[in-house]
Design a protein around this nucleic acid. Structure first.
Lengths: 343, 343
DNA sequence: CTGTTAGCGCGTTCAC
DNA sequence: GTGAACGCGCTAACAG
C-alpha cells in the first residue's frame, strides 16, 4: 500500500496538519519540526496523493487539449509544444482528439470539467456556439488557438488569417500570376472564410474579379488537394497558380498536376500553408506561408497558465503571432500574362 | 456549485447509499425507488464526481500514453488510434511525450501512478531497466508497443522487427542489389539491433559479408537521413541501395542523393519503413515496409483494456502483427552487378 | 506555532 | 430493501 500523510505524521510525531503545512508552506512551522518532517518525507519517499488533493482544491494539475485531428503534422507539433510547456510547469495533458465531431467535443468538454481540469486549450479553426456557451457557463480557463476571439470573451492566439492569405495572394500576384485558384477547407470554418477574404482583397487591389469557380471547398489533407486538383485540371482554362490552405493540400495538388501531365512550377505554381517539416524536403520544395507552430503552442500554454495562476486579474488577450512567406521551388514568376494550359 | 449525490438523494427522498446503488447497480433496489432516483438524476443532470470516485476506488478511467516523440507521423497516427479506442471505452488519455529522456520517462511514470491511472501504453523501441522495474514493482497494467517482451512479463504488440528487416533486405537482394547500406537509429534501441540482425541474416544467405562501414547510426527523422546520406555519398564506392529505418530517413537520404548529384532510383535505390501517408505521395514514391500502425494502436488499446477489466486471469500476450513490403518508385531492379557511382 | 476536527463527494459495511 | 455512519487522503478552519 502507498504511504499517506498519516504515516509521515506518525513517524515524525506530529499531526497531519503540520505535515500538510510544511509541504504546502501554508502556515509557519518551527524550523525544528519542519526539518524533522522533511526528513521523514524523504525517508518514506512520501508523495501527496493528487486525487485527494483535487477533491478538496477543485484543481487537478490537468489540462485538457482539444484538437480536431492528430495525424496532421502541424497539429502534432503544436501538441508537442503544449505538452512540453505544461510538463515544465507540472501540468499533465489530457489529449482529446475530436475529429471535428461536435458530439465528441461536447462529451469531452463535460468530461474535462468533471475531472476538474485546471484549464483547456482549444485548437479550433471555428468554435461552435455550444463550445462558446460551455466556457461562458463554466468558469474554466480556456485559450483558443488557431482562432482569434474578436469579442474579447476568451484568450486567444493565432496568426492573422486574413493578412496571411492576403500576403500569400499578393506574393503570387507580384510574381505575375493573374488567375489563381484557392484550394480551401470547408467554409464552415471561420479560418477559411477569413483566408478567403484576404485572398479576395488582394485580388481586388489588382483589379481582378473574384471567380467562384476557382474556389474549391475540401479539407486539409493530401487527398483533398488531390481531389481539388483533379477537378480543376479537368477544365480547359487553367489558372497559373494555386493557393492551398495547407502544405498537405499543396502536395495533393502537385500529385494531381503530375497525374494530369502538368509540371510544377513550370506549368502551374502551387503555394502551401503551414511550413511543416516535409514542405522543405518535398520536391518541388514548397513555397508556403509559415506559421510559427511551435512558438504558438508554447505561448498558448503560457497564456493559459498565467490565466490559471492569476484568475482574478488576468486580462484576456487576443495575441497575434507573425506569419512569413517562405519562397521555395513550387512557385515561379510568370512574365507574360498567358493562361496556363495543358500540354 | 455542482450538484452532488446528496442533492439527488434529497430530491428523491432516499439516502445517498441508495442513489449510489442504483447508479452502480451494486445492490438490488426496488423498482419504484430505482425509477424515482433515475428520474431525479436525469432532471438534475447529475454526474458522479470522478475524482471522489477515484479516491475510493483507486481507479481513474485515465490511461497514460508514453511516447518517444509526437511530431513523427507514424507515432501521431498511433496516438490517434489509441485515443479513439480508449474514448470509445470511456477512458481518457494522458499524453506523455518523453522525447526519449529517461528522467522525463521516470517522472511521468511516477506521476501516472499517483494519479491512479488504470493502465499505461508504453511506446518504446527499447524499454529501459528502470521502466521494467517500475512495472514489476507497481501492479499497474501495461502494454508495450513497438517492442516485444520475450520474457513474458508484460503484454506487448509489435511487428516482427527481425523478419521485417530480413524481408526488406531480401527484397533488395532479389532485385539484384548486392551492396546495401543501412541507415539506422541508435543501436541502443533494441528495435535497431533486431532489424540489423534481420539485415545481416538476409545478407548472409546471399553469401555477402556484413560491412560495418555501410551501417549509419543516426535517428528516425529527415535530418538523420540527410546526414547519413551526405556522409555515405562522400565515399568513392557507393552501394546500389539503402535500407532506411523510417520513411523520414528515406526522404532525407533521397534529398542527400539529390544534393550529391545522384538520381533515385536510377543511381541508387532507397527503401523506407513505416509507410506513413507521405510515403506514397512523395516523389519518388517510397518503396517501404508497411507497419499497420492504426490497427496496432487499436489492438494495443484493446489488449490493455482487457487486462484492466480482467486483472486476475489475464494471460500476457506477446502479439505479432504482420508487416508488408510496398513496392513503389524509390527502388529499382539492377541487372548487372556493378557498383553505383557518381556521375 | 501546533493539534483537533470538519468536510471534499462518493462507495460500502453494518445494522435495521 | 434501505439508511446511518465510516473512511478514502488531504486541506482548512478553529481552538489552544
Amino acid at each position: 500500500m502507498d504511504i499517506t500523510i498519516k504515516d509521515v505524521a506518525m513517524k515524525a510525531k506530529v499531526s497531519i496538519a503540520t505535515v500538510s503545512r510544511v509541504l504546502n508552506q501554508s502556515k509557519p512551522v518551527s524550523q525544528a519540526i519542519k526539518q524533522r518532517v522533511l526528513e521523514v518525507v524523504e525517508e518514506l519517499e512520501y508523495n501527496p496523493n493528487p486525487v485527494a488533493r483535487s477533491l478538496i482544491m477543485k484543481e487537478s494539475k490537468l489540462i485538457g487539449l482539444l484538437i480536431p485531428a492528430i495525424e496532421n503534422t502541424y497539429i502534432s507539433i503544436f501538441v508537442g509544444a503544449i505538452e512540453e510547456e505544461l510538463f515544465k510547469n507540472n501540468y499533465t495533458t489530457l489529449l482529446c482528439n475530436t475529429k471535428r465531431d461536435l458530439d465528441i467535443e461536447l462529451h469531452y468538454l463535460k468530461l474535462l470539467k468533471e475531472k476538474y481540469v485546471d484549464g483547456v486549450v482549444l485548437l479550433t479553426s471555428s468554435p461552435k456556439p455550444q463550445q462558446i456557451e460551455f466556457f461562458e457557463n463554466h468558469a474554466v480557463p480556456v485559450i483558443f488557438a488557431s482562432h482569434t476571439d474578436t469579442e474579447g470573451r476568451f484568450a486567444s492566439i493565432n496568426i492573422d488569417e486574413f493578412q496571411a492569405a492576403y500576403d500569400a495572394t499578393k506574393f503570387l500576384l507580384e510574381s505575375g500570376h493573374r488567375k489563381i485558384a484557392f484550394f480551401g477547407g470547408p467554409l464552415a470554418y471561420y479560418q477559411i472564410v477569413q483566408r478567403l477574404e484576404g485572398y479576395k482583397q488582394a485580388l481586388k487591389e489588382y483589379g481582378i474579379e473574384y471567380d467562384d469557380k476557382l474556389f474549391y471547398e475540401q479539407d486539409y489533407d493530401i487527398e483533398s488537394g488531390y481531389r481539388s486538383g483533379m477537378k480543376l485540371f479537368n477544365n480547359d482554362e487553367l489558372p497559373t497558380a494555386i493557393f492551398c490552405v495547407s502544405d498537405m493540400v499543396a502536395i495533393g495538388a502537385i500529385r494531381a498536376a503530375e497525374d494530369s501531365g502538368l509540371r510544377v512550377p513550370e506549368d502551374i505554381s502551387v503555394m502551401g500553408f503551414d511550413d511543416i517539416p516535409i514542405a522543405g524536403a518535398y520536391r518541388p520544395a514548397l513555397t508556403t506561408v509559415r506559421q510559427p507552430v511551435y512558438e504558438l503552442g508554447v505561448q498558448a500554454a503560457q497564456m493559459l497558465l498565467r490565466q490559471i495562476q492569476d484568475k482574478e486579474n488576468y486580462v484576456k488577450e487576443a495575441r497575434i503571432v507573425p506569419h512569413e512567406i517562405i519562397e521555395r521551388g513550387s512557385c515561379r514568376k510568370v512574365t507574360n500574362n498567358t493562361q496556363g494550359g495543358k500540354l
